[in-house]
Structures are given as structure tokens and as C-alpha cells.
């Protein structure tokens, strides 16, 4: 097992390097230079040269990449061109806010998805299955930013029950004042993973149930609950893999939902940075979110291998 974990980690390193390379390239493709951002076009060329020198833009791309990578490894993500504050600090604060809603949405979405998917599969063809199939199709097809707007329309505009946007007092959410603004973003975000995970749980459970060993377990005299444990264990790896991917989509998808609810997370940060051309923020946000995505999927691989020894190969 340890050997497997070690091997997976060595496989992830080139991917992470590739991610840094792509993020670095993104900024190179971007039109406009930092000097154009910071000073008016009429500024003397000597000033622009000075800025280019400070940002290391007078060096070769090769040097620039490795300098940037070196900085990354020490936790230095650069300085925002707009606020002149270190990107790492701003990103960290935004990340905490994003994780606050995405983690809870993931737990709720995955939990309900597993529950409904399993109920659906065990009652295949009956009304709970039909109802859930309907809900999950809607869940995977709904544009969540639209759902967010609908919720604001219903719960904020029509009934004035929940705040339309913003975030409660900062800090770990313990009070109602902190939870109240989170209800709608969390509901919106959890619907998609619920649909996707639920559909997959249903399909994998049906698949496992159709295999012969399940009948053998029953014939061996195992109780229903024990049989279900075996079924769950066999269906788990595929479901785990999709959960990892879904968590990544949540991180990305929250960008749109955060925009609707004006939630001060990475999505809002990224959105603002795009419209102010704040390249260091765009670069760092894309990079950090993607690295998180890779690491989550690494954790999923390890968890899969822990459940199913065949995956250790």
C-alpha cells in the first residue's frame, strides 16, 4: 500500500509541473503587458523598462518560468496589480470562504446522492426510483447560476426570508447570522453533485447487484444488511472517483454561484481580477484551485486502493 501511495505521488509531480507550465503560458498569451497596466501609455520608456526589470520581464521566458516556480515553492504568489497586496494573502482569505460553502455542499450533495442513488437502485422501476431519476436528471442539467437567481427571486424578493447576497460575520460558522447567507449558495451548489453521484450510485449498485456473487452471498445465508455491505464495498471505488471529479467541478462551479450571491470567495476574486486585468491574481487562483483538484484526486486514488486492493496493481 505504501509503495502504491509513493508511486502515485511520483506520478502526480509531472502533472503538477505541467499545470504550472500551462498557467505560466496562459499569462504569456494574454495581450497587454504589466507596464501597460501600471502606467499610462504616455509614460517614458525608461519607466516601462524599469517596471519590466522589477517584474523580471526583461529576462528570457525560460528564466522567468523558473524564477516564478522558485517563488511558488516558497509560497510567494506575487503581488496584485490592483490592490498592491500579496496575492497569497488575498487568495488564502478567499479560499477559506469558498471552501466553507463547497465543502459543506460536497458533504450534503454526496451524502444525499449516495442515499437516493441506493434507494433508487434497491427499488429499481418503482416510484422512488422514477422520482429520483427525474430529480437527478434535473440536477445534472440545471444551470446552477440560474437556479441561484431563481432562489433569490423566491426567497429574497418574493418572501424576504433570506439575504440575497453577501456573507455573515467572518469566522468559523457557528451562529445563525453566519449560516443564514450560506443556505442558498449551499443548496444551489449541492444539487449538481447530488444528481451526478446519485445517478452513478444507482448505476453501480444495479451493476453489482446483477453479478452472480451477490446471489451467492444470499445463498450462503448472509442477511440483507450484510449483503448490502458487500454491494457497497464493490460499488464504492467508481463512486469515489466521480466524487473527486465533482469536488473539482464544485470549486470551478462556485465561481458562477459566488458571482450571483456576491460571496467573497475565489470565484468573486477571479471574476474581479479578470475585469481589472489583474494577471497575478488570475494566475494564482487558477493554479491553486487546479493543484487542489489534483491533490483531491490523488487522495481519491489512495482511498480507492485502500478499499479495493486490485487497484494497487
Amino acid at each position: 500500500m505504501l509503495q502504491f501511495v509513493f508511486r502515485r505521488i511520483t506520478q502526480v509531480i509531472p502533472i503538477l509541473l505541467g499545470v504550472t507550465l500551462v498557467t505560466f503560458a496562459l499569462v504569456q498569451i494574454m495581450p497587454g503587458s504589466i507596464a501597460d497596466m501600471l502606467v499610462p501609455p504616455s509614460a517614458p520608456q525608461s519607466l516601462k523598462d524599469e517596471i519590466n526589470r522589477i517584474y523580471g520581464l526583461d529576462r528570457s521566458l525560460f528564466e522567468q518560468y523558473f524564477l516564478w516556480l522558485g517563488q511558488l515553492l516558497t509560497g510567494n504568489l506575487g503581488v496584485s496589480l490592483v490592490s498592491s497586496r500579496p496575492v497569497a494573502g488575498e487568495l488564502f482569505a478567499a479560499m477559506l470562504n469558498t471552501l466553507q460553502i463547497t465543502l459543506i455542499s460536497a458533504v450534503i450533495g454526496f451524502g444525499l446522492g449516495i442515499l437516493f442513488g441506493a434507494i433508487s437502485a434497491l427499488n429499481a422501476g418503482k416510484w422512488p426510483d422514477r422520482l429520483f431519476t427525474f430529480v437527478s436528471i434535473a440536477g445534472v442539467s440545471v444551470p446552477h447560476y440560474w437556479l441561484a437567481i431563481l432562489m433569490v427571486t423566491i426567497f429574497s424578493v418574493q418572501f424576504n426570508l433570506l439575504p440575497a447576497q453577501g456573507m455573515g460575520p467572518a469566522g468559523f460558522p457557528t451562529t445563525w447570522e453566519q449560516w443564514r447567507p450560506m443556505i442558498m449558495p449551499i443548496f444551489t451548489l449541492s444539487l449538481i453533485p447530488m444528481g451526478v453521484v446519485g445517478r452513478l450510485v444507482r448505476a453501480s449498485v444495479l451493476e453489482v447487484l446483477s453479478q452472480e456473487f451477490v446471489q451467492a452471498l444470499g445463498a450462503k445465508g448472509l442477511r440483507d444488511r450484510q449483503v448490502r455491505m458487500h454491494v457497497a464495498k464493490n460499488a464504492a471505488p467508481a463512486v469515489l472517483a466521480v466524487m473527486g471529479l465533482q469536488f473539482g467541478y464544485l470549486l470551478g462551479g462556485s465561481i458562477l454561484v459566488e458571482t450571483v450571491f456576491n460571496w467573497p470567495g475565489t470565484g468573486k476574486l477571479l471574476n474581479q481580477a479578470i475585469f481589472t486585468n489583474d494577471m497575478p491574481i488570475i494566475q494564482a487562483t487558477v493554479l491553486v484551485l487546479s493543484i487542489m483538484f489534483v491533490l483531491v484526486n490523488l487522495a481519491v486514488d489512495v482511498a480507492q486502493a485502500a478499499i479495493d486492493p486490485r487497484m494497487r496493481r
Binding site: 509531472p14 502533472i15 503538477l16 505541467g18 499545470v19 507550465l21 500551462v22 498557467t23 496562459l26 499569462v27 498569451i29 494574454m30 495581450p31 473539482g248 467541478y249 470549486l251 470551478g252 462551479g253 465561481i255 458562477l256 477571479l270 479578470i274 488570475i282 487558477v286 484551485l289 487546479s290 483538484f293 489534483v294
Partner: peptide
């Protein structure tokens, strides 16, 4: 496949937004 793995490492929405932000 290894090249695709790198692009697969980006969450879809994020990659789409990043590319749009870059090319206009």
C-alpha cells in the same frame, strides 16, 4: 495521454474561464 492528464487537472469551468480571460 500524459499531455491530456495535465489539461484534465484543471476543473472544466475554471479552464474555460481562464482561457476566455486570456484570449478575450
Amino acid at each position: 495521454m500524459r499531455t491530456m492528464d495535465v489539461f484534465y487537472a484543471f476543473p472544466a469551468v475554471l479552464l474555460a474561464i481562464a482561457v476566455c480571460a486570456v484570449i478575450g
